[in-house]
Computed example of a mutant assay.
Amino acid sequence: MSSLLPVVGPASGHDQEAAASIITIQKVKVKDLQLTCEFTEQRTPDAPPRAFALTCAEQIHPDLSHALSRLVPHLCLLTEQLAETPDFWPDEAEELPALFEPFTVTGFSMGKHQGGVTLIGQRELTGGRVLNLTAPYQSFDDERASYPYTGLLEATLATALAEVEAALRGKCTEYRQLDLFEQPTAANIHVVPTPPQA
Score class of each variant (00 low, 15 high):
161 L>A: 00
27 K>R: 14
63 D>I: 02
149 Y>E: 02
74 H>Y: 02
122 Q>Y: 08
186 A>T: 07
105 V>K: 00
90 P>R: 02
171 K>M: 14
20 A>S: 12
119 L>K: 10
97 P>A: 10
42 Q>P: 01
184 P>I: 05
71 L>H: 08
62 P>K: 03
181 F>G: 08
102 P>T: 06
42 Q>C: 04
113 H>G: 00
10 P>M: 10
46 D>H: 13
97 P>E: 06
5 L>T: 07
132 N>P: 01
17 E>R: 11
155 A>M: 11
96 L>W: 02
87 D>S: 15
175 Y>W: 13
27 K>V: 11
44 T>L: 15
181 F>M: 05
148 P>R: 01
181 F>A: 01
105 V>M: 09
55 T>Y: 02
133 L>C: 08
153 L>H: 09
168 L>S: 02
139 S>E: 06
48 P>Q: 14
164 V>W: 04
8 V>F: 15
122 Q>M: 07
70 R>I: 09
107 G>R: 02
33 L>S: 08
102 P>F: 01
193 P>L: 04
167 A>F: 03
116 G>I: 04
21 S>L: 08
59 Q>G: 12
72 V>G: 11
5 L>N: 11
5 L>H: 07
19 A>P: 06
167 A>G: 01
113 H>T: 02
118 T>H: 05
129 R>T: 15
33 L>A: 11
6 P>W: 01
186 A>Q: 05
80 E>D: 15
62 P>H: 10
70 R>W: 09
145 A>H: 07
114 Q>A: 14
138 Q>T: 15
160 A>P: 00
97 P>Q: 01
120 I>F: 06
191 V>Y: 13
71 L>M: 06
54 L>M: 14
153 L>K: 06
131 L>H: 12
32 D>C: 03
111 G>I: 04
107 G>K: 09
126 T>I: 13
152 L>I: 03
76 C>L: 00
126 T>L: 13
1 M>H: 14
139 S>L: 02
4 L>M: 12
98 A>H: 10
80 E>L: 12
19 A>S: 11
105 V>A: 07
83 A>S: 13
26 Q>M: 02
7 V>I: 14
34 Q>Y: 03
155 A>Y: 00
69 S>P: 04
68 L>D: 04
154 E>A: 12
117 V>M: 09
4 L>W: 06
46 D>M: 12
191 V>E: 14
1 M>C: 14
143 E>G: 07
119 L>Y: 05
143 E>K: 12
149 Y>Q: 07
55 T>L: 00
170 G>N: 03
29 K>Q: 11
21 S>T: 13
28 V>W: 07
114 Q>K: 02
131 L>T: 03
87 D>C: 10
117 V>W: 00
166 A>K: 10
122 Q>G: 00
28 V>S: 07
82 L>Q: 06
160 A>V: 00
53 A>Q: 13
68 L>C: 05
129 R>A: 15
164 V>R: 04
88 F>V: 08
24 T>A: 08
176 R>P: 04
147 Y>S: 05
130 V>P: 03
1 M>Y: 11
